[in-house]
Design a protein around this nucleic acid. Structure first.
Lengths: 250, 250
DNA sequence: CGCGCAGTTGAAAGTTTTCAAATGCAGTGG
DNA sequence: CCACTGCATTTGAAAACTTTCAACTGCGCG
């Protein structure tokens, strides 16, 4: 299949004043000096662009790099022998994929662009090397990975204990907060993924996703037009999900 | 309640020849020189013992350390506002807990001993510090964390796509391979956790767990006596679960 | 303009859960 | 040492949520 990969003509996201990606405060928010900055730029290769539907990497390919999403959106998924996919995450600009493959010779999942997507490549060997010299980089990656574990645990919790409505409300609010983080509207956004993907990710049939979204619409919680969503009643959605809280003092 | 914590009188697991824990080839399999070894020993505090039912740490407590399990077994779980637990993992000797809290000021889950359990404490600040000087230690922790992400993703997959039978077969085989790793019998072992915990972890009602286990017994796949299990038909169990495989070439 | 896929909706079918209750096991105290 | 209490486990039957199957609608693109 045509995995069309091209180099973006101009690094439009670069901030010309310091030659630094405008998203770096999200994916690599490091306080480093000029010299370290240059080292970092030597490691991170900016500007690879992939078309919608193309892979950034595939399961079982040799693991070489992690990637930071610059624009677009990515889904990662594992494939079983029977051929069914399990989506393990959706990744938006400023987020990093490939962290789950750092323990192996090969990628443990596939990464596919949900839209036309631009990524920065972070070769793992160079990253490891630099991290030993840049404590803040090491610290940052420990944090990133730890966060990924935590989020995956929360997904497990969602899948294990929550109803279809709770799962979908939770996903919507997660997307909302991630858009907000990027200074975009937390209440009006376009879903980067198909209903199919939502269902797959949340362990629900497509039809269930559709029904729940329709129900939310009827309840006045959201307003949907295809993939365009606006959250009308934020608190209502929050009440649907069950937030994590303090450990019981048994 | 009574969180009785004591210091083990003698570090019985230490290998006297090199003063190194006999499990270190599992949790910290590093090729380091004598000097680095001493640094490492300065960081890892061995020999804290907790009674069955006691916590090693609790959600929302200040995060200070990760812990390596030396003996016994631990479950980690998150607690929601409503008070219901979600178990995020079972940890056996040679495995490390707390990796999901390295991105925050506080622990993101509780860790409770399923049996009388001994742990080695690994203060995070010292670990980070040493990791910048010991590339192999940094590498090892990247691997550990990556593996944890991967395993959590696989759990998500299990919860999202698989039936009760597949989930339980999968857990049994996971435990089996982890006992094998410790040179214990992979076919006969004692479950460290209650049926309740299994159900919680796998997103099933206790009753379902009980029924499936009974069914496996009737099918001749396993032989159960309370928590003592022997896997009679290993291949049969493997056929029940759907293994991960190569990415489809779409 | 029509094909094709994404999304929606309805009704029946299935797992799994919930509710209820019995049984077993273990630690406690008499 | 045994009865007792409490918790873990098992089992049965009904209820519930979600899935599956089928069919229809809608939108984007060639």
């Amino acid at each position: 299949m045509g995995e069309r990969i091209s180099i973006s003509p101009a690094a439009t996201l670069l901030n010309p004043s310091c030659n630094r990606c405008s998203l770096s405060n999200l994916c690599l928010p490091l306080a480093v000096n000029q010299q370290d900055m240059e080292r970092l730029e030597d490691v991170v290769q900016q500007g690879r662009t992939v078309d919608k539907g193309s892979h950034i990497f595939k399961q079982h390919e040799p693991f070489k790099s992690c990637y930071a999403v610059r624009s677009g959106a990515i889904k990662t998924y594992m494939v079983s022998e029977e051929g069914d996919e399990q989506i393990t995450g959706f990744y938006l600009p400023g987020e990093i994929i490939g962290l789950d493959s750092m323990n192996a010779e090969t990628y443990s999942c596939c990464a596919k662009a949900l839209d036309r997507t631009s990524v920065c490549e972070i070769p793992f060997d160079k990253l490891e090397d630099l991290a030993t010299r840049l404590p803040s980089l090491q610290h940052h990656f420990f944090q990133l990975m730890s966060k990924e574990i935590q989020e995956s645990h929360q997904l497990s919790m969602l899948l294990s204990k929550n109803t279809a409505e709770e799962r979908i409300a939770s996903l919507l609010l997660s997307l909302s907060s991630r858009f907000k983080r990027r200074k975009l509207s937390p209440t009006r956004f376009r879903l980067p993924m198909a209903r199919n993907d939502i269902g797959n990710y949340l362990g629900l049939a497509v039809e269930t996703v559709s029904r729940v979204i329709t129900r939310f619409q009827k309840l006045g919680l959201i307003d949907v037009q295809g993939r365009d969503i606006s959250l009308k009643n934020f608190e209502g959605l929050q009440e649907i999900i069950k937030p994590i809280s303090r450990c019981s003092n048994e």
